[in-house]
Amino acid sequence: MQLYRVLTGPDDSSFCHRVSEALSKGWQLYGDPSYAHDPVAGTMRVAQAVVKTVQGAKYSSDMKLGEQ
């Protein structure tokens, strides 16, 4: 089974650490990152999709994807 999730956050080192943590848990980058300006906060936001293949698991909408 292949899982998909999108990580989002401010364009700073905390976001890079979230992506690095996901990669260390076996997730793989899926596509290019996306950037957008948040006019309310006055900052840039970034998003990165990641995927992971999990053997022997059955998908459920109750799954905590970040814990896979």
Rank of each mutant, 00 (worst) to 15 (best):
61 S>T: 08
17 H>V: 07
56 G>H: 13
40 V>H: 06
68 Q>Y: 14
62 D>M: 03
11 D>I: 02
16 C>E: 10
30 Y>S: 15
66 G>W: 11
35 Y>I: 10
17 H>A: 15
61 S>C: 02
21 E>Y: 14
44 M>Q: 09
35 Y>G: 05
65 L>A: 06
1 M>V: 01
29 L>R: 14
21 E>D: 14
22 A>M: 15
33 P>R: 09
13 S>V: 11
32 D>F: 09
40 V>M: 04
66 G>D: 12
22 A>G: 13
53 T>R: 04
12 D>H: 08
3 L>R: 11
54 V>N: 04
6 V>T: 15
15 F>D: 12
48 Q>M: 06
42 G>E: 00
14 S>P: 02
63 M>G: 03
45 R>V: 06
13 S>T: 10
50 V>K: 13
20 S>E: 10
17 H>Y: 15
16 C>Q: 14
68 Q>V: 05
59 Y>P: 04
17 H>N: 14
40 V>W: 04
13 S>Q: 13
59 Y>V: 05
37 H>E: 05
13 S>R: 10
5 R>I: 00
23 L>I: 15
16 C>F: 09
24 S>V: 07
10 P>R: 12
61 S>P: 08
7 L>H: 11
46 V>E: 02
25 K>M: 14
64 K>E: 11
31 G>D: 04
50 V>E: 13
46 V>K: 02
45 R>H: 10
24 S>W: 11
36 A>M: 03
61 S>Q: 05
23 L>A: 15
40 V>P: 00
55 Q>Y: 03
1 M>C: 01
2 Q>D: 10
8 T>W: 00
27 W>R: 09
38 D>M: 03
29 L>E: 11
50 V>Y: 10
36 A>H: 06
54 V>D: 06
21 E>I: 07
27 W>K: 10
51 V>W: 02
22 A>C: 13
68 Q>F: 15
19 V>R: 09
11 D>W: 04
67 E>H: 09
39 P>N: 07
54 V>G: 04
30 Y>V: 00
27 W>G: 12
4 Y>H: 15
37 H>S: 08
35 Y>Q: 08
25 K>E: 12
67 E>I: 01
41 A>W: 00
36 A>L: 03
5 R>T: 01
32 D>C: 04
67 E>V: 02
36 A>C: 05
7 L>R: 07
63 M>D: 12
62 D>N: 06
10 P>M: 08
25 K>I: 05
14 S>M: 12
37 H>K: 03
11 D>K: 11
45 R>I: 05
9 G>W: 05
38 D>T: 04
19 V>M: 08
26 G>S: 00
35 Y>P: 02
5 R>M: 15
24 S>N: 03
39 P>A: 07
65 L>R: 03
65 L>H: 00
1 M>Q: 03
1 M>G: 07
34 S>T: 00
50 V>M: 15
18 R>A: 06
57 A>I: 02
22 A>K: 10
53 T>V: 06
46 V>L: 01
12 D>Y: 08
20 S>H: 10
34 S>V: 00
56 G>M: 04
30 Y>L: 08
46 V>A: 02
45 R>N: 09
38 D>N: 15
54 V>Y: 04
26 G>L: 01
17 H>Q: 14
11 D>A: 14
43 T>K: 09
43 T>L: 12
16 C>K: 09
59 Y>K: 07
21 E>K: 15
35 Y>D: 02
